[in-house]
Amino acid sequence: MEVLLFGIAKDIVGKSEIRFSETDELPGSVGDLKRLLTASYPEFGKLSSLAVAVNSEYATDAVFLTKDDEIAIIPPVSGG
């Protein structure tokens, strides 16, 4: 499972992707992944709008995740 980080998410984690290996316990859903991220990086808890895409499609918290999924964490960005 590969999690790509954009915008402030990349800044919070300090890298542009997180890889879960076969042996890691994988988040079962988008909601689980958000909770996992917030537990590891509390600053995620501050973001009120955080879009998540699974395999390039927007995903709600209820969407299930599998080990081959590519996930993108897309916070809003404001700069112009």
Partner: peptide
Amino acid sequence: CIFPTMPQADEVPDCNANGV
């Protein structure tokens, strides 16, 4: 539809604060 609610002032930095 993609970002339902407006972030608060301190959530996400702008270009002036963050650089571009």
